[in-house]
Amino acid sequence: MSSVTDVKDKSPLANLGDSGAYQKLLAFASLIALLIGFSIASPNFMQTSNMIAILQATSVNGVLAVAATLVIITGGIDLSVGTLMTFCAVIAGVALTYLGLPLLFGVIAAIAAGAFCGLCSGTFVAKMKIPPFIATLGMMLILKGLSLVISGTRPIYFNDTPGFDQISRGSLIGEVIPALPIPNGVLILFLVAISASYILSRTVLGRYTFALGSNEEAVRLSGVNTDAWKMRIYALAGGICGIGGILIASRLNSAQPALGLGYELEAIAAVVIGGTSLSGGRGTILGTLIGALIMAVLTNGLRVLSVAQEWQTVVTGAIIILAVYADMVRRKKSG
């Protein structure tokens, strides 16, 4: 037995934070390969403005993917991240445009709405024992409907709230380093990612997130109040979707109530490409970020090469299958 364990111990997978390291490396290598490939194919690709456009495009999907990662590591799934984002944007619109509240209140309202909806999903899953797929599918439709109801099916514009569009489109970094006008939306994505990564690796909540995905019943029988922790994780994910709602509303300077469907699948795709296991217990935020970047680079690069939009979707689908297949092959090899 000892000889077997010795060998296993040499693997870099020994540390929990590093699980999926190979996949991350693979994903990172694919990202670099894509960047090099597209720069050779088109001189317009490697422009600063285009790079920034890619990052900007990553910000919303990236934030949603971070939220989805948390839930997926518990062994669940969250299909409501897209329409929750829209719902939160609409709530921000109600607070700022309809009620005329100050900017900060709008932001807080959106995040609180997100956390509350996440808590609802969490309650359905943890207390009512509804499978996460069904619970969040229901939530997805409820939120889509509510967004349309609250907004009267019309977009809510933020023209009366000066500075709202700067949340995403402004550039604090650009003011300090004019040559690097990275939009605030990207900055926010990185802040969200770093916080989520910290929570996952350094806090009790994070440790239980992995433990739930690894073996929920064992955790429950260890005397841990698994229901309560699970609800917290869904609420946290919901709050992060609220931030996503602010980002998209700010970027469009409006809350578009019809938007949102389909975002959840792109977020889940980013999570999967980033090496997080859909069966739970394994995954990293860094992987998810790389996954989101790969999707954005791909979309952008294909557009720069004038590939039709329809084909971009086909390629994205193929990439997801390839990424997961590579992970399977890797895992089979390492036994």
Binding site: L16, T203, V204, L205, F210, N215, V219, S222, V224
Partner: peptide, 30 residues
């Protein structure tokens, strides 16, 4: 395997599984 251990996690985490509060600050940092 099913009810006693979080098998994907390491020895340290499994020992601490019931007692995370002993290892965390007020804000839940481990």
């Amino acid at each position: 395997k099913h009810f006693g251990l979080a098998t994907g996690m390491n020895v340290r985490d499994n020992i601490a599984l019931s007692s995370m509060d002993l290892f965390s600050t007020g804000r839940g940092v481990l």
